[in-house]
């Protein structure tokens, strides 16, 4: 067999792509947000596909793009969306020193594998020019459908099992009756009739509307000039994205000082009146 030479173009490709892939993979260790990690790993997958094609594995390169970046990583992004993008990772260590031991294990693995690959007595590379004579896909198919026909049939069974398993794992059996809008209204009215004074039958107040702000994150103002917390949706409150009411100074900067002009926003004495009502 003839010996294969690696073109300088491939070397350039490798030295551009390899650092990018390692950086993307390092995102797995150091990035905070899960979505960023997913995108970085998808980039690594694309880089791997290019490397497969450079290694004369055209079919695998295309399959890599379709299967990994197209299906697997998008499935990951989909699940991240389901589970919640904002789910933060706790930094508390349950096992003391586990992080350092893991880093040590990773470095040890790296050194071990690097030493083995660089010091092993490997044969001179042959190259796939002969095997790929009738295009790579044909060469792979010849082996796949002759020597590996039984494992190939088994993968069919595996894929069907996986599909059914995923369906049964994510299937949810409804245990109680469905609690819809109608039932919610009935329950609210029932609670109100039973004398629960804090229950609202009507909608909660809408958020305040100001020309300079996104109205969804601005609280409504009650009669005493205080912000109404309940007027902002729970999602924005949990994320801490609600805005504060503009202060008197901010309004003054905008050219309309609070209390000057036609009518004051906070009615004098309203706060006292509310206190009396509360008592």
């Amino acid at each position: 067999m003839t010996e294969m030479t690696i073109s300088s173009g491939e070397a350039v490709l490798f030295w551009i792509l390899a650092p990018l892939m390692v950086m993307g993979a390092l995102g797995l260790l150091f990035a905070r947000r899960t979505v960023h990690i997913a995108v970085a790993v998808a980039g690594v997958m694309v880089g791997l596909a290019v490397m497969y094609i450079a290694n004369e594995a055209t079919f695998l390169g295309v399959a890599q793009v379709v299967v990994y970046t197209g299906a697997v990583m998008m499935l990951f992004v989909f699940v991240i969306m389901l589970i919640g993008v904002d789910s933060t990772e706790s930094l508390k260590e349950t096992l003391t020193g586990q992080r350092w031991l893991a880093a040590l294990a990773g470095v040890g693995l790296l050194v071990l594998m690097g030493a083995i690959t660089t010091r092993a007595a490997l044969p001179a590379p042959v190259g796939l020019a002969e095997a790929n004579a009738d295009t790579n896909a044909v060469g792979v198919a010849r082996i796949l459908f002759s020597d590996f026909i039984f494992p190939f049939e088994l993968t069919g069974a595996l894929l069907i099992t996986a599909a059914v398993g995923a369906l049964s794992l994510t299937h949810r059996v409804r245990l109680g009756a469905k609690f819809g809008q109608k039932e919610m209204a009935a329950a609210k009215l029932k609670a109100y009739g039973a004398g629960a004074s804090s229950t609202l039958i009507t909608n909660r107040p809408n958020p305040g509307v100001y020309a300079r702000h996104n109205s969804a994150d601005m609280p409504a103002v009650d009669a005493a000039g205080e912000p109404v917390e309940a007027s902002i949706t729970t999602v924005l409150r949990i994320r801490g994205q609600e805005s504060n009411l503009p202060s008197a100074e901010e309004l003054a900067d905008a050219g309309r000082p609070y209390g000057q002009g036609e009518e004051p926003a906070a009615v004098p004495g309203a706060a006292d009146e509310r206190k009396e009502l509360e008592q």
Partner: peptide
């Protein structure tokens, strides 16, 4: 060698990260 580096990074991520997806 590149595949060894990627494998070691992946293994370390499995050991270090707490988020199941990561």
């Amino acid at each position: 060698v590149l595949s060894g580096i990627l494998f070691a990074i992946g293994g370390t991520a499995v050991l270090v990260r707490r988020n199941a997806i990561v």
